[in-house]
Design a protein around this nucleic acid. Structure first.
Lengths: 344, 344
DNA sequence: TCTTTTTACACAAACGTTTGCGTTAATGTT
DNA sequence: AACATTAACGCAAACGTTTGTGTAAAAAGA
């Protein structure tokens, strides 16, 4: 209720000028040690906390960054955000989050909100609907640093943090091949999204390298890689005359549903068919058999995004608007894909 | 790089005073419709976006709220945050997040950061280490609205959003009893935390009501209800001479491990022993058999917290510092607890 | 001892908005 | 026709900090 104590008030109490107080609190060299101590003590005594809005206003620095994610409660994103927050906290930034809810219009609305100096930079993972990037181009004009992660704009020259989806999918598929799989299926994500296109490419490339036939019937597309879609795909595989003996799934949810559907049908995993997922969701370590999957390094992705963003914020002169950082994944081999036959 | 266009610049271009521009953009009644249109069009043309820091500074309103959570990549919290963000977005607030990482000192540091008018109110879930609430009392003195959720300070008079843990545990346990369980075990959370104390109380109360013996050996305490701790507890139950025929677990992770350990030991679930968890984590709907659990209403909890907080921010006169809102949970009955014997 | 440098502080402007009040012209009221 | 009301806009102060510059006294150099 009562208006808080200001730097001026503190100055009056100490018979000093506001500028001295400001500098004393900032540990400026031109203020005497004795005075600094007096100021600090009095500030503590009267409970003075500087008005950071006024400071931001004056300094033209808010020390805060914005994040736009499709949804916060998707585990992948919450881990990325955690990485961002961790890095930001250490470097004195704070993070403001918005969720686009995978809506293009909401994403645009959010960018409007963020254009007014509230944040010094933005980290974004595109909504699934987004095909047009006009609303992000404005940030470039405004000189506001921008970093995309995971779902990045293919046609836009920008900072991007991605994972080597192609190679990840390649080694995941090759892992199945090495485990004696001959007919390897793939449950694919939406082909409107680059990352899922890359995973499909990596899958086919691995088959090609090892001279395995690429059977289009074994490649099943999905919209959002949901658990339910995974069940449908699994059932399709079950009905086939010659079933696959290995399945590379573009995420863990669909992999889990394949495991469950197959098991219920009396199929032994990994003996009859080996399964590999993608993303290393918590469930992958719990489901039985434990799921082989690729660690997508979500936390590191967040850190990398925050690091790149803050560097661009602080290095105004060497401002590079289009750096692409590719993170290396790691195949976590667990029970679901190890077949004694060729366990190398 | 180039300093952005300001309201004053816009005023010059239009031969109007800054005040008129400001009011025109705010759709003030004392500005002519014709003028408003001119202003809006010119603003659009030159790409003027108001400096919200300056506005916040002048109006003394930042329209933003802060959140302190233990970790944002814990699913429960990310859902709460999602609920907060959703409500905040609709009402024009934006949210800044901090994670305490369950560290008391970091929590204190964060509260220091938040004391400087950056946010107009704070929503917090206490770190597991926090026993002393002195750092939150300062907010009361400063008149800064504060709302706790889930892990709330027991000895502090404050706004709290909680779930009726006692009743939830009671009905969960009673559900087991109705399903013909006679020896019901309980895997309990840390008894330093109120919510887990309440769940234990609800469990014992249900047993008492139905005249079942309360066997202390069946009540196993844990530190953080992790999957691994669940495995340990499950093995202890296995080794008992007279095993439980029902287990009420204080969360879903431990429930899942009990299911898996028991199944591996050849025990049929739910026929031999029925299991109930708590929180309705995604895995509860996937694990086989599907886990009966209580929906903890995380998203609604976030909404309720945000609603209460914004009301207190905007109703300065009727400021109530200690409202307690209890959300009702819902028992989601699935396979893991349904025994044909007394399936009512 | 006189000048130069350093130390330690004060002055005042500035950041970009918002808002109470004042002013003019147009409209409405008797 | 004289007055009251309203409509539409301008003036100027204010929000609380930071920072370039000015200045006095103290210390150092000659």
């Amino acid at each position: 209720m009562s208006s808080r104590i200001t730097l001026k008030d503190l100055a009056k109490k100490l018979n000093l000028s506001p500028s001295t107080i400001s500098r004393a609190l900032a540990d400026h060299h031109s203020i005497g040690e004795e005075t600094k101590k007096r100021v600090r003590e009095k500030a503590e005594e009267v409970g003075f906390t500087p008005n950071s809005i006024a400071a931001s206003f004056r300094k033209k620095k808010t020390k805060s960054i914005g994040i736009i994610v499709p949804r916060i409660d998707v585990h992948f994103h919450s881990r990325v955000i955690s990485g961002i927050e961790e890095f930001a906290y250490k470097t004195g930034y704070n993070v403001t989050i918005f969720q686009s809810k995978d809506s293009f219009v909401r994403e645009k609305e959010i960018t409007k909100i963020l254009q007014n100096r509230m944040v010094e930079g933005i980290i974004v993972c595109l909504s699934i609907e987004t095909q047009d990037y006009e609303h992000f181009k404005r940030f470039k004009k405004l000189g506001m640093p921008l970093v995309f992660y995971d779902r990045v704009p293919s046609s836009l020259d920008a900072n991007k943090i991605i994972v080597n989806d192609f190679e990840s999918a390649f080694t995941a598929t090759e892992h199945l091949i090495k485990n004696n799989c001959k007919r390897i299926a793939h449950i694919a994500g939406s082909q409107n999204t680059d990352i899922f296109k890359e995973r499909l490419k990596g899958y086919t490339a691995a088959l090609k390298k090892h001279h395995l036939k690429i059977d289009p019937d074994l490649i099943l597309p999905t919209n959002n890689l949901s658990y339910e879609e995974g069940v449908i795909c699994a059932n399709k595989y079950l009905e086939m005359e010659s079933r696959p003996d290995g399945v590379f799934c573009a995420n863990d949810y669909t992999a889990v549903s394949v495991i469950q559907v197959f098991r219920k049908a009396g199929i032994n995993i990994p003996k009859d068919v080996a399964i590999v997922g993608f993303s290393n969701y918590p469930i992958s370590g719990i489901i039985e058999p434990n799921l082989t999957t690729v660690n997508d390094r979500a936390f590191q992705m967040g850190e990398a995004a925050a690091r790149l963003l803050t560097r661009q914020i602080e290095d105004e002169e060497n401002y590079i608007g289009s750096e692409i950082i590719t993170l290396n994944t790691e195949l976590i081999v667990r029970e679901s894909s190890i077949r004694k036959a060729s366990n190398k």
